[in-house]
């Protein structure tokens, strides 16, 4: 085990797998970040992602193109985001309740429509390779594929699909837009002190709607990744709680994009380790119940929320409907 090449052999695939698993979390987490930074709490990430995955699977199958799938996913996800926006912004309804409703709507409708349209137990048709986002091989870079560096290159960095790169690109873009532009400054201000923004003559509702739409677009990417990149079609309950892990990651990241990247990678790695260790004994430790790794993201989030290891404080006005005073 002391041989570094062996350790690389063992770890590189897990890290590569962790990256692949963290991509949907990252999209969804950034989606939540946009929404909550503007003051709209969104626990409907799961539902939007699920609906988008279904739409992406159906769209890619119908038009024989992964891009059509991506567009379909985004359109459906944005539509749900607008329902949430209408409830939260115009109707000043409870944002948690609205999010719960959207999660159920997606869970029910995807399977219902999938069954009626395709009759495959809620699945969309299996996609051919030409209908998916496939891994982009970046070549060997002149590295010996059996060397440690070569393994790291081939297992961890090369071979990811276009959407994976989009997810990692979305992190700096989010940071620049939200922290380095006037629009971003206002958007964050709306989440902290909407009255001040309103007084300055900027429409609170307008800003929040824009944030909610960006949230929908990012959830669309997340869903499309699941259905047309990572897999070859939609299966029922495909998101399996990823939207809630993303929510946990958002809390974990203290609503900051770079931290979000870290949190999502961490949670993705935990998932990869859990998958890899299922029923496999560890040297010296015996079989570790994989549930330990599965529970860690949730447990860590609770501990963080409790403020025992640093404090995680949401934007001040998030979750509170904005009412113009008098």
């Amino acid at each position: 085990m002391s041989d570094p090449a062996m350790i690389v052999d063992l770890l590189a695939p897990v890290v590569g797998s962790g990256i692949r698993l963290s991509v949907p979390l990252l999209f969804a987490c950034l989606a939540g970040l946009w929404s909550e930074r503007s003051g709209v709490v969104d626990i409907g990430l799961e539902g939007k992602m699920l609906a988008a995955a279904f739409a992406a699977g159906a769209g890619a199958a119908a038009f024989h193109s992964p891009w059509a799938g991506l567009v379909a996913g985004i359109v459906v996800s944005v539509a749900l985001a607008l329902v949430h926006g209408f409830a939260a912004i115009n109707q000043r309804g409870n944002q948690i309740v609205s999010g719960v409703a959207i999660n159920f709507l997606a869970a029910g409708l995807t399977v219902l429509l999938g069954q009626v349209w395709y009759g495959q137990g809620g699945r969309t048709p299996q996609l051919a390779n030409s209908e998916r986002f496939l891994g982009l091989d970046l070549g060997s870079l002149g590295l010996d594929p059996s060397s440690a560096l070569g393994r790291i290159w081939s297992d961890v960095i090369s071979g990811h699909n276009a959407l994976t790169w989009c997810a990692f690109l979305a992190v700096p873009i989010t940071w620049v837009v939200l922290w380095r532009t006037r629009f971003g400054l206002r958007l964050r201000a709306v989440g902290d002190n909407p009255h001040a923004v309103d007084t300055a003559g900027v429409s609170v509702a307008g800003l929040r709607y824009r944030a909610v739409i960006v949230c929908g677009i990012l959830c669309g990417f997340a869903g499309a990744y699941l259905a047309v990149a990572q897999s070859a079609g939609f299966v029922r309950d495909m998101t399996a709680g990823k939207g809630f892990i993303a929510l946990a990651a958002l809390v974990f990241s203290k609503w900051k994009p770079l931290n979000a990247l870290g949190a999502c990678l961490l949670f993705g790695m935990l998932d990869a380790v859990a998958i890899r260790l299922q029923g496999t004994p560890l040297p010296g430790l015996g079989t570790v119940p994989v549930q330990v790794f599965q529970a860690l993201p949730y447990a860590l989030t609770v501990v963080l929320l409790a403020g025992f290891i640093g404090r995680s404080i949401p934007p001040k006005a998030s979750g509170i409907p904005y009412t113009k005073d008098r």
């Binding site: 329902v83 944002q95 409703a101 959207i102």
Partner: peptide, 25 residues
């Protein structure tokens, strides 16, 4: 068989949406 149990989930979602989030509409 076309109206699977998932229809109930949809109804549930709509009830939550209209009786909850959009209760003031």
């Amino acid at each position: 068989p076309a109206i699977s149990r998932d229809m109930i989930v949809v109804i549930q979602a709509l009830v939550i949406l209209f009786a909850g989030a959009l209760e003031h509409m």
